[in-house]
Simulated scan of single mutants.
Amino acid sequence: MLKGFYTAASGMIAQQRKQETLSNNLANANTPGFKADQGSLRAFPEMLMQQMGSKTLPTKQGTTLPIRNPIGALNTGVYMQETTPSFTQGDTRETGMSTDMALINGNMPDEDGGLFFTVQNEAGELRYTRNGNFTVDSEGFLTTKQGNYVLDQNNEPVQTLGMEFQVDKEGVLQANGQAIPLGISYTPDVYQMIKEGEALYRMNEGDEGQPPVNARNTAGVSFTTEQGFLEGSNVDPTQTMTEMMNSYRIYETNQKVLKAYDQSMDKAVNEIGVVR
Rank of each mutant, 00 (worst) to 15 (best):
G273T: 08
K169S: 04
Q81G: 01
A219R: 06
N234V: 00
L26K: 01
A14C: 03
N131D: 15
E82P: 03
E198C: 03
N131Y: 07
R93H: 08
Y6L: 01
L74N: 13
T187G: 05
I180C: 08
D152A: 06
A36N: 07
R127N: 04
E156S: 13
T84L: 04
L161E: 14
A27P: 11
Q61V: 11
M193T: 10
G77P: 13
G96F: 09
E226T: 00
K3G: 11
L161I: 02
A36P: 02
A27F: 02
G183T: 08
V167W: 05
Q174I: 13
P237C: 01
T118L: 06
I71P: 15
L65E: 13
T63Q: 14
T187W: 02
Y6E: 02
V274E: 12
E94H: 14
E20N: 14
A215I: 02
N204D: 15
I272Y: 12
N107S: 05
E164C: 02
Q38Y: 03
Q159D: 05
K55S: 11
F141V: 01
N148T: 08
G206K: 10
T238G: 02
A14N: 06
S86W: 00
E198W: 04
M203N: 12
I184G: 06
S247C: 11
N214V: 05
I194N: 12
E170M: 02
F229P: 00
E231N: 11
M47A: 15
R68S: 15
Q166Y: 04
E170C: 00
Q227L: 04
V172L: 06
G72M: 01
N25D: 08
N25V: 01
A102S: 14
R17M: 13
S222Y: 04
S185K: 05
S222T: 14
M52H: 10
G62N: 14
A268T: 06
T88V: 10
D91V: 05
N25L: 02
Y248V: 09
A27R: 11
K195W: 10
A29H: 03
S98D: 08
N30H: 02
D137K: 09
E243R: 05
E46T: 15
T21R: 11
R216H: 04
E164R: 10
M245D: 05
I250W: 03
E122F: 01
G273V: 03
G171A: 01
P32E: 12
R216E: 09
L182S: 03
Q120E: 15
M203W: 10
F87Y: 13
N105Q: 13
L258P: 05
A29L: 05
S264A: 09
M108Y: 09
A179R: 11
T84R: 12
L41R: 14
Y128S: 09
N254A: 10
Q146H: 03
T238A: 04
Y186W: 02
V158G: 06
T95R: 13
N148H: 14
Y79T: 08
E271V: 06
L26Y: 00
Q210C: 03
T242H: 02
M101N: 09
L182I: 04
Q210R: 12
N214H: 07
K169G: 01
R276Q: 09
V190W: 08
D266K: 12
E94S: 12
I184V: 08
L182Y: 01
L258W: 07
F134E: 14
L142W: 09
Q81W: 00
M1L: 08
L26A: 01
K145V: 12
K18D: 11
N28F: 02
Q51T: 15
E164Q: 12
T76S: 13
A9G: 01
